[in-house]
Amino acid sequence: MNNGFNPYDPVRARLIDIIDESPNIKTFRLEPEREFSFKTGEFIQLTLDGIGESPFTPSSSPYVNDRLDVTIMKAGYVTEKIHQLKGGEILGIRGPFGRGYPVEKFYGKEVIILGGGCGLAPIRSLLFELLEQKEKYKKVTLCYGSKTPTDCIYKPMFCDLNKVENFQCYRSVDVADDTWDGHVGVVTTLLDQINFRLENAVVVVCGPPVMMKFGTLKLLQIGFDPKDIYLSMEKNMSCGYGKCGHCMLGDTLVCKDGPVYTYDEVKNYDHIW
């Protein structure tokens, strides 16, 4: 693995398509110059040449390795620049890094997914993974919340998923005007509407820190075991493979031991959200 391999050297990838998802979220479709495979939930470092690098979890299927979707919210300097891209540009990807979703632990169980905002990006990849071997899971329930109806991403995906046996999707928006006739309320209120057997269910939570915090509190209140709550932790990863120290979370490194942790693994650290 070390012969000539430099972990700091990105694989070049061409930007072949840009999909507008919401006013500040776009999906960027990349075609790497060589095969690039990843497991669902692992992350990559995306380089905008000469500008900077940011960590993202791909939102596409882990079963596709000749192209890669990265869904990006305009949030800082690098993402702002990425949003200005027109298509055709060459970007760099390093990775994949980290520990993704341990799907084999979900076999035979009900998988409840709680997603918020741009946190649906890694979840879309996870859903592709779950769909690929859907007979292995008892039931998959997606609860997704966005701030307003226009902030909802991957809109077509919800209809498609609801057609799949044992897959159910619920959407909510924090606030809405009268043109929205769906569920209103923070995403955690969806949990009151769905049926599941607590003792045979696992929950995957991914979203902005505020949502992760309140989501986890609600799940604990419902009675979930901290070991059955899977969280995606966000940190300012730089190197991506455990050297640079930017993503230390107590004695763990988010880029190596995460980004997916169970709540049980992180509950005793300060400032997790």
Binding site: D9, P10, T47, G50, I51, S238, C239, G245, H246
Partner: peptide, 17 residues
């Protein structure tokens, strides 16, 4: 600890941080 800084040509500069 360090931070990677990007330079044109996909070069990474490691700066101690």
């Amino acid at each position: 600890c360090f931070l990677l800084i990007d330079r044109p040509g996909f070069e990474k500069i490691r700066n101690l941080d």
